[in-house]
């Protein structure tokens, strides 16, 4: 996977739920292109026409809340979205994105307008808004998720490793 991504931003607000990322009526399929054809349809009907491969989704709090449908990150990935950046993600969406190999970064202090150009260094977690000239640091992802993302997703990870590594006690965080 590329570790430095460039693309322009499509900016959305807080609490974008999975029904708005891909409505439930389209989810019963194994044809990923048919998911991409309807991505963000109710939220932003123009998105499919505007977006170019490599573009980025930038959102506020709790992106991907609602159902557990993995079709949501799959629809974004298949449509050509290179990374999703949010202040924070709903838990299941966050796992699903990494599991299907769609990079997802949590950046608490991001400012962006639709159309801003971004450069994202996945390995360092550095997000640059080259239009506005600002730089932001993403929160660190848990170790397992890093390993899964670097393998290109959970399928590739388990094909290579067979199982999860044992976890060691790491003390507690408050």
């Amino acid at each position: 996977m590329d570790t430095v991504l460039c693309g322009s931003a499509h900016v959305y607000g807080d609490d974008i739920d999975t029904d708005r990322i891909i409505p439930g009526k389209y989810t019963k399929t194994l044809d990923l292109q048919s998911l991409a054809d309807h991505v963000l349809e109710d939220l932003d009907p123009e998105f499919r026409l505007r977006m170019r491969p490599g573009d980025m989704i930038i959102a506020g709090d709790n992106f991907g809340c609602g159902s557990s449908r993995e079709q949501a990150p799959l629809a974004l990935k298949t449509a050509g979205v290179s990374v999703v950046i949010a202040r924070y993600f709903a838990r299941i969406f966050y796992r699903n994105a990494i599991n299907v190999g769609l990079p997802a970064l949590e950046v608490p202090d991001l400012r962006a307008e639709t159309g801003d150009e971004f450069t994202v260094d996945l390995a360092q977690g550095v997000v640059r808004n080259t239009t506005q000239g600002t730089e932001h640091q993403a929160d660190r992802m848990p170790e397992v998720m890093m390993a899964i993302l670097h393998s290109g997703g959970l399928v590739a990870y388990l094909r290579a490793h067979g199982t999860y590594p044992p976890t060691e006690p790491i003390g507690t965080t408050p």
Binding site: L30, L74, V144, L154, V155, Y164, T172
Partner: peptide
């Protein structure tokens, strides 16, 4: 709280929204 753990799972379930993709991923992961 705060620790990452790998845990044994007692039981699992998938519906017709999620099982087809699960079956595909299961086969692809060997």
């Amino acid at each position: 709280a705060g620790e990452l753990v790998v845990v044994n799972v007692d039981g699992s379930m998938a519906s017709d929204t999620t099982a087809p993709l699960t079956i595909k991923a299961f086969e692809e992961m060997g």
